[in-house]
Design a protein around this nucleic acid. Structure first.
Length: 567
RNA sequence: GCGCCUGUAGCUCAGUUGGAUAGAGCAACUGCCUUCUAAGCAGUAAGUCGCAUGUUCGAAUCAUGCCAGGCGCACCA
């Protein structure tokens, strides 16, 4: 819709000023004030400075050109310093309903992405514990962005990078081994403190119990019981990494389950850090950097010259004990993603990792890839409130609220909607009480209720023998209420919202769109009956609400929130 | 100390990439159910866009400097 008008204007401008090589792009906006029409452009003003002419004069010329295309426009005028305000005819708007009803689920999908490939990596939480609410926000944002970009015509791959290697997994092994020994024989660990740097959460005990149950007191458990205290706390011990691996895959399974229950989040690729090491990809990358002179040795360690690429200092990739840092693996990981020829690579990270961006981007640049292809979305922190008071979370004591707890408490729909109704880069206060409310205070219910109400109308109509009509069977001109045209205009803007949301990578725009639509609908519903004595009018209105149902359902789908038929 | 994010109505937040008179939702107050779901609607009230300069026809939006809050500044992951 918007594009059609933009092109029309562009053509008009080119017609009038054929000699000018460089014409500014036509910029169309929706005026805040409805009196200013459906669309407005400042093109005459931007042209004015370039052509050294009066903007109102230019505007008049453009309008004159547009006048020849009378079918679309109802009203075109000059306003203020040189804005051109345009209104489309009611008939034009009403006819858009046919398009919506015909295309159904596909309405809103666009070609902005032109099939370009996008890799979105999100969550990627370490498999050393359950997901917390912060991960939940990242999960909702990443998944919704994937849906929005797919709708906008990108070919999207969802990826989870599993940090299943390194000292954290050995640390996990130590923690679990301790709990296994404690569970089997409390006297055995009485003399030994649980390691300060270990994982203190209660879930470690659950993992221990599960491993004991799975093994049926088999050889692994007896071996663990037979360890000396020193071996048990030794990160290098064989049993430490063995238990660590088992615990890690168990915890990753739980993470995956939690995400499935959180609006059905699935990943196309689960990348393994361990795998990168095993296939020698990390070593190869280090080698490549060394050959290119991007790495130097100092103090027994190897340093990547990230400061040459905008980082504030150089970073160690090989420690003086010969082991590799997380960054080393991460460089290899991003190299792999870039070599797969994705057109865009998007990483969704917690905002606490922002300091990490320059070194990764630096590495990407150093490898000769276009750093523009790489975008990081920093999802800001989440704080929880209950009864108006903050819920204290401390990772230290293992006393943090998990995503599963929140989803169990408020439901997946509310949790997802709440995470997605704010910009991802603003600090977010999650009101648990509000999320549970079943009233209009709660935005997610408000929007879902719109869908349920429409379904109810359709059911009632069916009982009276009125089925949703075919386009040729509808007298659209009967839709004369101003609320009806307002709703249509909102519905028609949906594809633009999807495009904007995708190109700005801002899924929250979908939530705001839904809010606006629901307000318009509920207001209309309260004022105007759909099913009236006049059958033709009933059908026309039914046709309208069917279109509205399609749009709510499609938009909710982009957020991964259900559109219930009954509430 | 350095870097990143944030600062808009009492509260939680939008603001279409620089446009016209800054908008929603809560909370507060006033009304509306013999009518398709009141999980709803209509109305009232609410602002020094953190502060200060600058850029230009035009700034909540861009630049610089302050102020406040959050988060980072490892041979941890």
């Amino acid at each position: 819709m918007k594009r059609t008008i933009t092109e029309t204007l562009d053509a008009a401008v080119r017609n009038i000023f054929p000699g000018e090589a460089v014409l500014p792009p036509v910029f169309l906006e929706k005026p805040r004030n409805k009196d200013h029409g459906d669309y407005a452009t400042n093109i005459a003003m931007t042209l004015a400075s370039q052509l050294k002419k009066n903007p109102r004069e230019i505007a008049a010329m453009i309008i004159d050109q547009l006048g020849k295309d009378g079918a679309v426009f109802k009203n075109v005028g000059i306003a203020g310093p040189g804005f051109i305000n345009m209104s489309l005819s009611d008939e034009y708007w009403r006819n858009m309903l046919i398009d919506i009803n015909k295309r159904g689920k596909a309405y809103g999908q666009g070609a902005l992405g032109r099939g370009e490939t996008v890799n979105i990596e999100f969550v990627s939480a370490n498999p050393t514990g359950p997901l917390h609410v912060g991960h939940g926000r990242g999960a909702a944002v990443g998944d919704a962005l994937a849906r929005v970009m797919a709708a906008a015509g990108y070919s999207v791959t969802r990826e989870y990078y599993v940090n299943d290697a390194g000292s954290q997994i050995r640390n996990l092994g130590i923690s679990v081994n301790y709990r296994i020994r404690e569970a089997k024989d409390p006297g055995l660990v009485k003399e030994v403190e649980f390691p300060e740097s270990g994982y203190h959460g209660e879930y470690i005990k659950e993992v221990a119990a599960k491993l004991i149950a799975d093994s049926g007191n088999g050889p692994l458990i007896s071996e663990i019981m037979g360890l000396s205290h020193e071996d048990c706390l030794d990160p290098g011990h064989e049993l430490t990494s063995k238990t660590g691996d088992l615990a890690q895959s168990l915890l990753l399974g739980r993470i995956s389950d939690t995400l499935k229950d959180f609006g059905g989040i699935n990943f196309d690729i689960w990348s393994s850090e361990q795998g990168l090491h095993a296939e020698g990809k990390v070593g190869d990358t280090i080698e490549e950097f060394r050959n290119k002179g991007l790495i130097y040795d100092k103090d027994g360690a190897s340093w990547f010259r990230s400061s040459d690429f905008g980082d504030e200092k150089d970073r160690v990739v090989v420690k003086d004990d010969g082991t590799l840092t997380y960054l080393a693996a991460d460089i290899a990981y991003h190299k792999e993603k870039l070599e797969k020829k994705y057109d865009h690579i998007i990483d969704v990270w917690g905002a606490d990792h922002h300091g990490y961006i320059p070194r990764v981007r630096g590495a990407i640049e150093a490898m000769g890839f276009d750093p523009e292809k790489f975008k990081v979305l920093l999802v800001q922190m989440v704080s929880l409130t209950r009864e108006g008071k903050p819920v204290v979370m401390s990772k230290r004591s293992g006393n943090f609220v998990t995503l599963k707890e929140v989803v169990d408490e408020v439901g997946s729909d509310a949790a997802r909607y709440f995470f997605l109704m704010r910009r991802y880069d603003s600090h977010f206060e999650f009101d648990l009480d509000l999320a549970k409310k079943a009233t209009s205070d709660n935005p997610v219910f408000y929007v879902q209720y719109m869908h349920a109400r429409i379904c109810s109308i359709i059911r009632n109509a069916a009982e009276e023998g009125i089925e949703p009509p075919a386009p040729e069977d509808v007298a659209l001109e009967l839709l004369r209420e101003k609320e009806e045209l307002e709703i249509i205009k909102i519905l028609v803007s949906f594809p633009e919202i999807v495009e904007g949301s995708a190109s700005a990578m801002e899924p929250h725009r979908i939530a705001f769109f839904l809010q606006d639509l629901a307000i318009a609908f509920h207001s209309y519903y309260n004022k105007t009956r759909v099913l009236v004595d006049d059958l033709r009018l009933s059908k026309a209105r039914l046709y309208l609400v069917c279109a509205a149902k399609i749009i709510v359902s499609n938009a909710l789908g982009l957020l991964g929130v259900k559109a219930p038929e009954k509430m």
